[in-house]
């Protein structure tokens, strides 16, 4: 069957390219300087990467079965860290007090806190992935920590994005967010993550 891979990759590309294209052509950009525009797009790109991560972890993408998929998953994880840093740094340059409020959880906007929580979960996840080999973290502990952080990242980012009145189109943004939640839920179910919590001794 050659049609299935084409359809999957086509749908995935559309789910990522359309929100990016809508954000890149938003009328709001006319009143923003390049740093602010770049910061916003880095955030949209980060959301697209967050959609890729569970699909790669679960080996759902044609041509990327679990083992190869997870190698790509690691690279995408590193790229996600860079995208999040670019997002926050660009916003910091645009309006330092707003970013300081967000980081200290004293922002008037409710979406800021969700974004900051997701940011720390991304950093913690990356740090854990680096330390995993060095510190010989046991697979079970690693999985428990990584899946918990992954859920925080997905949920935090989705709430963050949905509450923002920004450059993303409402329809494409909602679609991307629903796909992130669906992909995250599917991989969690398929990998039976609840077993990590329920059965203390495997």
């Amino acid at each position: 069957m050659r049609l299935r891979p084409v359809l999957i990759w086509g749908a995935l590309s559309a789910a990522i390219v359309v929100p990016l294209a809508v954000a890149a052509t938003s009328p709001l950009l006319a009143w923003r300087d390049p740093v602010y525009i770049g910061a916003g797009l880095a955030g949209v790109a980060a959301m697209a990467l967050i959609l890729l991560q569970p699909l790669l972890a679960g080996g759902y993408l044609p041509g990327l079965p679990p083992l190869r998929g997870r190698r790509v998953h690691r690279w995408i994880g590193g790229t996600l860290v860079v995208a999040v840093i670019a997002h926050v740094a660009g916003l910091w340059l645009t309006s330092p007090p707003d970013v300081i409020d967000a980081l200290l959880f004293t922002s008037p906007t409710p979406f800021s806190a969700w974004g900051v929580i997701a940011m720390w979960a991304v950093f913690a996840s990356a740090l854990l992935a680096i330390l995993r080999r060095q510190r010989r973290i046991r697979p079970r502990r690693w999985r428990l920590a990584h899946t918990t952080l992954a859920m925080v990242i997905a949920l935090g980012s989705v709430i963050h994005a949905l509450l923002i009145e920004g450059t993303m189109g409402t329809v494409s943004k909602t679609a991307l967010c629903l796909l992130v939640l669906a992909a995250t839920a599917k991989v969690m179910l398929d990998l039976r993550v609840w077993a990590l919590w329920s059965r203390r001794r495997a």
Partner: peptide, 8 residues
């Protein structure tokens, strides 16, 4: 005063 009111 509101949160973030004095920003910028």
């Amino acid at each position: 005063s509101m949160r973030g009111g004095s920003n910028n």
